[in-house]
Computed example of a mutant assay.
Amino acid sequence: MTSRLVLVSPALTAALREARFDDGCPLDAAGLRQARAAAGSLPVAEHVWSSPTVRCRETAAALGLDAVDAPELAALDAGRWRGETLAEVGAREPEALAGWLADPTAAPHGGESVRAVCERVAGWLESAGSREGRTVAVAEPEVVRAAVVTALGAPASAFWRTDVPPLTAVELSGRAGRWNVRMGHPL
């Protein structure tokens, strides 16, 4: 059985523009316009999921998707760095930030490590791969990164080498444990 999975990254928010760890902010006016303009551009799907974050829910709604929240697609828990920019964290905790970016098992912020996100997403991919038909999921950029790393069988250290622009789609096809990846195309 072949499964098809389309992962859509959320539209623009102030947090994404500012390289800020998600703080629950909504889509900005430009992001909302772009998402509404892309409505109808996704293939029909039997299963539609969304990260429970505000920006993913709003993106799904603007795209005209009736999505169900999937906790496994939640944003990386940035712990005490939540709401801060990379520049702010780097100025205050340069060694901690450098360690987090270099070591997938590190979680100096008290939240989730990159490896933990990859493992969480791998579990979700396993269940998505067992469903027949197409699945569309609006997911945080780090979740899309983790899915690509997992699908390619790459080490968690490859996580930071994958860019996920706003409002793009990455397609996975195959079955759990054996995925093909079609890299992000804009909606």
Rank of each mutant, 00 (worst) to 15 (best):
D23P: 06
D22F: 06
R131L: 15
A91C: 02
V114Y: 01
G99V: 10
E142R: 12
A75G: 15
R82D: 08
C56P: 12
F21E: 03
L27Y: 09
A102P: 08
R134Q: 12
A11R: 12
T53L: 14
D103L: 11
A60I: 05
A75E: 15
P26C: 07
V143M: 12
H47K: 09
A29D: 14
A137D: 02
A37I: 01
P141Q: 10
T59W: 03
D69Q: 07
R115F: 08
R57H: 07
G133M: 03
V138I: 05
P26G: 14
E132Y: 11
L76A: 10
A91D: 04
P52W: 11
L32T: 08
V136F: 14
A38T: 02
G79L: 05
L7P: 06
L125D: 01
V6Y: 15
D22G: 09
A106Y: 03
G111A: 04
A11G: 13
A45I: 00
G64T: 00
G110F: 00
S127V: 15
V114A: 01
A70M: 09
A139R: 11
P10Q: 10
A38N: 02
G99W: 12
G123V: 01
H47N: 08
V68I: 14
S130L: 13
R120C: 00
S50D: 02
A45Y: 00
R120I: 00
T135Q: 03
G64M: 00
A29Y: 09
H109D: 10
G133P: 05
A96C: 05
P141H: 09
S3Q: 06
E119V: 13
C25L: 15
A116E: 14
